[in-house]
């Protein structure tokens, strides 16, 4: 448990630092901007209580907002991501797995589960993020293309991070 806590804190610090120091400066005009910091929320322990999950997601969002000067935008997207995560875990994991405090990583869950998880979660996060940022349905196609291109960018980066940090452990789901 203690070990888990420390590794999550370290993961948080590293991902936020990379996000605001490196990925903030990357992008294809303003069409595609990557946000791989959401990997932190995706990798929180599975059995975390809903309330804690929402609080952590909100604080993560506010931290990123502070660096992007966009109060509340990332917070809203991270909260939506947390909700999606709860929903996804409930329909894909059995009760034993839902109670455990394991990290839902590539090595633990297998590629099929982890891949679906990352792709769908990223889409959910980016849809909320870009619509809250624009705050209207004007230029719908423009926003939509931002969402799709940024999602592809983020997903690729998350898989690269996944490959670099891959460690195979016991399979919880296949």
């Amino acid at each position: 448990m203690n070990n888990n806590l420390i590794s999550n804190i370290i993961r948080f610090l590293i991902l936020i630092f990379i996000q605001v120091g490196l990925f903030k400066n990357m992008g294809y005009y303003s069409l595609a901007t990557p946000f791989p910091y959401i990997l932190f929320i995706l990798l929180l322990p599975i059995g975390l209580s809903n309330f804690m999950l929402f609080v952590i997601a909100l604080l993560t969002g506010l931290t990123v907002d502070a660096f992007y000067d966009s109060v509340g935008v990332h917070a809203a997207a991270c909260v939506a991501l947390a909700w999606f995560r709860i929903f996804f875990h409930r329909i894909t994991l059995d009760i034993d797995a839902q109670e455990s405090l394991n990290t839902p990583s590539w090595g633990n869950m297998g590629f099929k589960w982890f891949g679906t998880y990352v792709v769908l979660s990223t889409l959910a996060h980016h849809i909320v993020l870009f619509f809250v940022e624009v705050f209207s349905f004007k230029n719908f196609l423009n926003t939509l293309s931002s969402i799709v291109l940024s999602s592809v960018f983020t997903i690729v980066l998350i898989f690269i991070i996944g490959i670099v940090t891959y460690r195979r452990k016991s399979r919880l789901a296949s």
Partner: peptide
């Protein structure tokens, strides 16, 4: 919980857009 936290975030966004006040989180 989602509704609660999401509304909180949206309130932050709207308040910031309206007043552009010097806020702590920038």
């Amino acid at each position: 919980l989602f509704i609660l936290f999401f509304v909180f975030s949206i309130v932050l966004v709207v308040r910031n857009n309206n007043y552009q006040r010097a806020s702590f989180f920038n």
